[in-house]
């Protein structure tokens, strides 16, 4: 699927990521065995148990958060922490597919938690209607095995990045606009952090997005999360995966850790 023949390089093979906590020996119930019967041959009981034991913070329950939450819940991720301060508006419904007309004016995390619980009652959902900020980012990231950036602004993203680095938790970043989207995996101490990748946030432009773009990038992010949690496959370390939906292209742009990064490096830029 990667069509790029110009900017290219090899993704590093998966290596153990720091900050991951695995419970050993979680037994699957008969119901779970049936529910996951079509993926157990792929990921094995061990993989399923890793998903079951995992705690994942999904920051943002909007366009990216909707597909991420649906598919992580369906795959059996055992503990999802949803963080989003906003309430559902009618203008969200073209892309935020967890929410529907009757949810308008409800907290997004409440609406999302309800749908996700109905999809998979065997997992634990925490719905936190708060804005991620400098004061609470560390607490929200606490105890998590993986952080997912499904946010809509770089200010909150930088706070999440700092929490990921401080606590050594992998972070999968994603963002969309129009027909375009991007995704990368940040492993503290190993890869470029979000600040290295984007030292300056893009200018705020009027958000317009076709819902499918958020769906595609959200599912790349969900797949990345599953691969990280089950420790299988190759993940987008030190590359920005870039989707151009207008011409159906997926490219990779190399990212490098900046030794002078103000967040993960020496910070001697000043």
């Amino acid at each position: 699927m990667f069509q790029d023949d110009d900017i290219f390089f090899t993704l590093p093979v998966y290596a153990e990521m720091q900050g991951m906590i695995w419970e050993k020996g979680v037994m699957l119930s008969e119901r779970e065995r049936e529910r996951y019967s079509r993926q157990l041959p792929l990921i094995g009981e061990e993989g399923q148990e890793r998903l079951h034991s995992a705690s994942v913070c999904v920051a943002g329950a909007g366009g990216l958060g909707s597909p991420v939450l649906l598919y992580l819940a369906a795959a059996g991720v055992g503990h999802l922490r949803l963080v989003d301060p906003d309430r559902v508006e009618r203008s969200n419904l073209n892309r935020q597919i967890l929410h529907a007309e009757p949810d308008i004016s409800r907290f997004k995390v409440e609406s999302a938690a309800e749908k996700v619980r109905a999809l998979n009652p065997d997992i634990r959902i925490e719905a936190l209607p708060v804005a991620l900020n400098a004061g609470n980012a560390q607490t929200l990231a606490g105890g998590m095995d993986l952080l997912l950036d499904a946010l809509d602004n770089y200010e909150a993203r930088y706070h999440l990045n700092r929490a990921a680095l401080d606590q050594g938790i992998p972070l999968v970043h994603a963002a969309v606009n129009g027909f375009f989207g991007q995704m990368t995996t940040i492993v503290p101490g190993e890869t470029a952090c979000l600040q290295c990748a984007f030292p300056h946030p893009p200018e705020s432009v009027a958000t317009s997005v076709i819902g499918v773009t958020a769906g595609i990038i959200g599912l790349f992010q969900a797949l990345e999360a599953i691969k990280i949690l089950i420790r299988d496959g190759e993940v987008a370390k030190n590359v920005l995966v870039v989707w151009d939906g207008r011409c159906g292209r997926l490219d990779q742009i190399p990212l490098v850790r900046d030794p002078a990064c103000q967040v993960c490096g020496k910070g001697d830029w000043q």
Binding site: L151, Y154, Q182, A214, V242, I253
Partner: peptide, 12 residues
């Protein structure tokens, strides 16, 4: 030389 340019996006 080759110069490549990409505009990061922000929405979620």
């Amino acid at each position: 030389d080759e110069v490549a340019i990409y505009p990061p996006v922000a929405g979620g």
